[in-house]
Structures are given as structure tokens and as C-alpha cells.
Deep mutational scan, measured.
Amino acid sequence: VTLFVALYDYEARTEDDLSFHKGEKFQILNSSEGDWWEARSLTTGETGYIPSNYAAPV
């Protein structure tokens, strides 16, 4: 399992994006889409796309 942590807060701009807060942890589901990764929040259980430059490996 690849775990990442949010470096900044992010507010979803589309219904496919995932809103999150700094410090929140994610499981990365798909990182082959370039700058946007499909991720599941370990806090909320929700799935959506996150900007890859807002996350770092745990």
C-alpha cells in the first residue's frame, strides 16, 4: 500500500476531485494520470482525484 500525506489544504474544484486538509493521509489508487492521482482518504474513506504536488510519501 502506497501511503501519502497532504502537504496543504485543497478544496475540490470538480465533483471528481477530493477535498482534503493538510496532514490527511491517502492511499494512492492510480498515479498513472500524470499530475492528478486517484486517491482514497484514510480519514473520510472518500475517493477522488488529488493534485500530486500537494502530497508526499509517508
Rank of each mutant, 00 (worst) to 15 (best):
V1D: 13
V1C: 14
V1P: 13
T2I: 14
T2D: 11
L3A: 07
L3V: 14
F4I: 07
F4M: 10
F4T: 03
V5A: 05
V5C: 06
V5E: 10
V5F: 09
A6H: 01
L7G: 01
L7Y: 03
Y8M: 09
Y8I: 07
Y8Q: 08
D9W: 11
D9S: 08
D9C: 09
Y10T: 00
Y10A: 01
Y10H: 05
E11S: 10
E11A: 10
E11M: 11
E11V: 14
A12V: 02
A12M: 03
R13Q: 14
R13E: 10
E15F: 10
E15H: 12
E15C: 10
D16S: 15
D16R: 15
D16H: 15
D17I: 11
D17W: 13
D17V: 14
L18K: 02
L18C: 03
L18F: 10
F20T: 02
H21Y: 11
H21T: 13
K22Y: 05
K22H: 05
E24A: 05
E24H: 07
E24R: 00
K25T: 12
K25Q: 12
K25S: 07
K25I: 15
K25R: 12
F26I: 06
F26C: 04
F26R: 00
Q27G: 02
Q27T: 10
I28V: 09
I28Y: 02
I28T: 01
L29V: 08
N30Q: 09
N30I: 07
N30P: 05
S31N: 13
S31K: 14
S31P: 12
S31M: 15
S31A: 14
S31F: 15
S32V: 11
G34E: 12
D35V: 09
D35L: 11
W36Q: 06
W36D: 03
W37D: 01
W37S: 03
W37V: 07
E38Q: 12
E38I: 15
A39F: 02
A39M: 05
R40Y: 12
R40G: 02
R40K: 14
S41K: 14
S41E: 03
L42F: 07
T43L: 13
T43N: 09
T43Q: 09
T43C: 12
T43V: 10
T44W: 02
T44M: 01
T44K: 03
T44N: 06
G45I: 05
E46I: 11
E46S: 10
T47G: 04
T47R: 10
T47A: 07
G48T: 01
G48E: 00
G48R: 01
I50S: 00
I50L: 04
I50M: 04
I50C: 02
P51C: 09
P51K: 06
S52M: 09
S52A: 14
S52I: 11
N53C: 15
Y54H: 08
Y54R: 04
A55Y: 04
A55W: 05
A55R: 01
A56R: 08
A56V: 14
P57E: 08
V58K: 03
V58L: 13
V58T: 08
V58R: 01
V58A: 10
